[in-house]
Design a protein around this nucleic acid. Sequence first.
DNA 1: GGCAACTTAGTTGTGCACAACTGAATTGTG
DNA 2: CACAATTCAGTTGTGCACAACTAAGTTGCC
Lengths: 158, 158
Amino acid sequence: MTTPTSDWLRLDQQICFSLHAASRAFNGVYRVILKDLGLTYPQYLVMLVLWEQGDLPVKKLGEHLRLDSGTLSPLLKRLEAAGLVRRERSARDERSVEVRLTEEGTALRESALQVPRRVAAATGFDVDEIRALRTRLDELTTALDAAAVDAAALEEKA
Amino acid sequence: MTTPTSDWLRLDQQICFSLHAASRAFNGVYRVILKDLGLTYPQYLVMLVLWEQGDLPVKKLGEHLRLDSGTLSPLLKRLEAAGLVRRERSARDERSVEVRLTEEGTALRESALQVPRRVAAATGFDVDEIRALRTRLDELTTALDAAAVDAAALEEKA
DNA sequence: GGCAACTTAGTTGTGCACAACTGAATTGTG
DNA sequence: CACAATTCAGTTGTGCACAACTAAGTTGCC
């Protein structure tokens, strides 16, 4: 009763497509909910980290979000232009740029407090279902990252 | 024992972040696996649909993938430049453009047959786990799409 | 002290996602 | 037939993701 090889390419059997579609659907919901805050979804993620961790160098921010400077630099510029953060060269290490919340950026947290509830409502899932799914996805990400690194290491040798 | 409101903004509690990270991790794995085929991941999805459904107008392609012409037009141009598809104005309806596989595009399917197995291996999940997760994600997407549409309808009235 | 190796942000270029728009073709209705 | 509404593909502009690279600063080792 194994699946024929020819069916392996069926779109509706590809986990990646479900994930891709779900990710984009989330993006759509956030786009609507975050419009009031004047944030895009990745910008919101950056603000979440800053609200939780306080001021951080770009490097640390990138580690929390798994994003590199190529993505963060322009994004942070836009947040700075919006008056939500300042970027200041660290005095101790001139290579490093410290991202600091402005008063306005700190204040925005109050408006953001309602966002998770509204998003959770949009999913129609209850708290336990969300937690279970989250755990599953995190396992998946760990496995995929490890596999990508292995593959990259294989390339290297070739 | 309810979660304090202040914790709702914790990054590690946000389902969206797990999903976003998982989606990007998948993208990384596909980038490596698909490099041999000369395809990006979204291009691969388009080819999957064409292999499964045969020639299709851009509109139908977009319905299968939930993508609009703004995304598909340039992507299809690149596939055409790579010699994998042709685009031809429909004779019956001159508004419509038929996307047809070339010989080369059809032939590429053989090389693609091994892709799902390699990806599945990278996840470390077995077939049942993948199926369960996929089902869950599809439910999520349906709920999120419905919520986004509702929100858009609310905007409309304001 | 001097210099190679490394670290950190930033830039450039490619590709995807999507909103808003354009222009051409078709359809529906009077 | 005429013409308004709709459909379809494509373009433009904005933003994100990421690879590859650059430039500046720091660290380690002699």
